[in-house]
Design a protein around this nucleic acid. Structure first.
Length: 277
DNA sequence: AGATGTGTTGAT
DNA sequence: TCAACACATCTG
């Protein structure tokens, strides 16, 4: 609360604790996680060893995500008792999913960061957990957070949806102080509520018009701790029924389902860019 | 150029 | 088995 006399600069993890008496600006942080190795660019690599050989599991922006990748590999390569970074009883769904896949395939999913999607896909097919929609699709339980009527600029050529500050501050993680468009953006993972396809969802493909609504909701349950340690959120968009006959071919009803999008939060005004690349 | 993944070595 | 470090290779 009170303003401290020293700088409020946040120290990166281990730097403050011990091990590094040298005040060098360079960051040589070894990871506290098993199977996680720092990359020269500040990212994190994940690796596991089998038969004296290293198996590379890919690189990750988040140290924890790399640690989680190791855990998945350890679970697949060494079975249940394997030491993990995030221990705990292995999720039943994950245990049903992993042993059936070839190791190489699991490794490939980790390297391509598609493991989460594949796991969810398997869960849908299994039909366990979640309600069924009228279309017979499994809908994961969720609780609504807020909704936004999109403005003309939201659906314009800018890949940016502005979220009201009030809602953003209440439901999204806080931005680092001094964060702006040129600093590292906060990444949130959103999924469409529709769980049928798994195809990549592009915001603009929804063909929304000003006045349509976008609903943000949040996972009410967790279905296995997956690679992403952030809270899972969902997006649902709903088109208004329009009376003017000018619509060509496409209006009314709910949005079709799709895959997952990463939403970047940035700036003091908390804008969320959806579908930007 | 920056990111990724391997070669390699030394420790546990 | 494991991670630190150097650097070759890949990629946009």
């Amino acid at each position: 609360m009170s303003v401290s006399t020293a700088q409020g600069r946040l120290l990166e993890g281990d730097e403050a604790t011990a091990a590094s008496p040298l005040p060098h600006a360079r960051a040589p942080p070894s990871s506290r996680y098993k199977g996680v190795v720092p990359q020269p660019n500040g990212r994190w690599g994940a690796q596991i060893y089998e038969r004296h050989a290293r198996v590379w599991l890919g690189t990750f922006a988040d140290e924890a995500a790399a640690a989680r990748a190791y855990d998945v590999a350890a679970l697949r390569f060494r079975g249940r008792g394997a030491a993990a970074n995030f221990p705990g009883p292995a999720d039943a769904a994950e245990m049903a999913f992993l042993p059936g896949r070839p190791k190489a395939e699991v490794v490939d999913m980790l390297r391509k960061h598609t493991y989460d999607d594949e796991l969810r896909q398997a869960l849908r097919s299994g039909g366990s957990g979640g309600d069924r929609s009228s279309l017979g699709l499994v809908v994961l339980p969720r609780v609504a957070l807020f909704e936004k009527a999109v403005t003309p600029s939201d659906v314009g050529r800018l890949n940016r949806l502005v979220v009201p500050k009030l809602h953003a501050e209440k439901h999204f993680p806080p931005l680092q102080e001094g964060a702006s468009a040129d600093t590292a953006p906060v990444l949130l993972v959103f999924e469409d509520v529709g769980v049928g396809g798994g195809k990549v969802w592009r915001f603009r493909e929804k063909g929304l018009a000003a006045g349509d609504t976008v609903t943000f909701s949040q996972a009410a349950i967790t279905y296995g701790e997956t690679m992403d340690v952030k809270r899972r959120m969902f997006i649902e968009c709903r088109k208004q029924k329009r009376r003017d006959g000018g619509c060509s071919g496409n209006d009314g009803g709910d949005c079709p389902d799709g895959g997952e999008r990463v939403v970047r939060l940035f700036g003091a005004n908390i804008a969320a860019a959806i579908g930007a690349s």
